[in-house]
């Protein structure tokens, strides 16, 4: 356990660094909208005539740690797709950072971590290459208009440098500063030593940390995790939630979709209990006291002591 403590200490250090760097970003965000990060109002959605999600309203404020729980088939993942703008609600509105979720185009502000099964494990790709993807929204032709000078003006003064800059921007090459952010993100999740390892060689828990690092590299303000610890062994699950907690303390909003009740109760500040509609929305303590669980899951479910499922 002592080894873990040392790691946790070094983790916190690097998270602080990450927050410093992200300050501009955060104040920008605050200036633009002090409102909720996620705002669903009376959202109804169904793949067929029967709604999977009905009349759901959910608001997540900046810095919150919210867990959405519910039995299998309760519409958790659908709700997540709705709030990320991947699906359009049949009725109601979904807003992300104050913008219509479907038209939201600051994708880098949202870090998404799926169930581990969905990533291409067989692909030859290193950990660093995966984390690098977090920087993709920042590179590309947009870089050409960086600063006050335009490329056309530069072209006459420094043709060679401008040509290289143009080529780098057009081909989406990462700059040294981007690589630094990538390495910082890897350090934050404690995966620096694995940077050049092929992703398929990692365990489930390690892989999920890499996906968190990708979100951090994108300087995400909101982390959305869809049952991230399915198929991850118990010891790694604990470490994973410690990391999430540390990131939340550093100011990142966390929205966790889970069916592992133990993990939710132990780590989240607020619980939303879903089974097509919202059965409960309140603090974790109130949730444990309430009968929401029994109503949402049916009468069988109840808490076992010790944080197990």
């Amino acid at each position: 356990m002592s080894a873990n403590d040392t790691d946790a200490a070094s983790d916190t250090g690097s998270i602080d660094r990450a927050t410093d760097r992200g300050t501009d970003h955060a104040t920008d965000a605050a200036a633009e909208a002090n409102g909720p990060v996620v705002d669903l109002a009376d959202v109804t959605f169904g793949y067929t005539a029967t709604p999977v999600v009905e009349d759901v309203s959910l608001t997540v404020d900046p810095g919150e740690y919210v867990a959405v729980i519910g039995p299998n088939g309760s519409g958790k993942s659908t709700l997540m797709r709705l709030l990320l703008g991947l699906l359009a609600p049949d009725a109601g509105t979904a807003r992300l950072f104050g913008e219509d979720a479907e038209r939201f185009d600051d994708g880098e502000r949202v870090g998404y971590v799926a169930q581990q099964a969905s990533a291409a494990k067989e692909m030859p790709i290193t950990v660093r290459e995966v984390v690098k993807m977090g920087r993709f929204p920042y590179v590309g032709v947009d870089r050409l208009s960086d600063g006050d000078e335009t490329v056309v003006e530069d072209l006459f003064d420094e043709p060679v440098r401008t040509a290289r800059r143009t080529a780098n921007a057009v081909s989406g090459r990462l700059a040294a500063a981007d690589w630094e952010i990538v390495d910082d993100a890897l350090a934050t999740v404690g995966m620096s030593a694995f940077a050049d390892r092929r992703i398929g060689q990692l365990s489930g828990g390690q892989r999920q940390r890499v996906f968190i690092a990708r979100a951090l590299a994108g300087e995400a303000d909101l982390l959305v995790l869809d049952e991230p610890t399915v198929g991850v062994d118990a010891e790694s699950v604990d470490a994973f939630y410690d990391l999430l907690g540390a990131l939340n303390d550093a100011g990142i909003t966390v929205l966790l979709i889970e069916h592992d009740l133990g993990a939710v109760v132990e780590h989240a500040d607020r619980v939303v209990c879903l089974n097509r509609e919202v059965y409960f929305d309140g603090s974790t303590d109130e949730f444990v006291e309430s009968d929401a669980l029994a109503r949402a899951f049916g009468t069988e479910a109840r808490f076992l002591t010790g944080g197990a499922e």
């Binding site: 002592s2 080894a3 873990n4 040392t6 790691d7 946790a8 070094s10 983790d11 350090a187 999740v189 404690g190 995966m191 620096s192 030593a193 694995f194 060689q201 990692l202 365990s203 489930g204 828990g205 390690q206 940390r209 062994d233 010891e235 790694s236 604990d238 470490a239 994973f240 410690d242 990391l243």
Partner: peptide
């Protein structure tokens, strides 16, 4: 030995 390998990765081998 406590190197920068990440918390809890010791028992986390595939």
């Amino acid at each position: 030995d406590g190197a920068d390998g990440g918390a809890g990765t010791g028992g986390d081998r595939p």
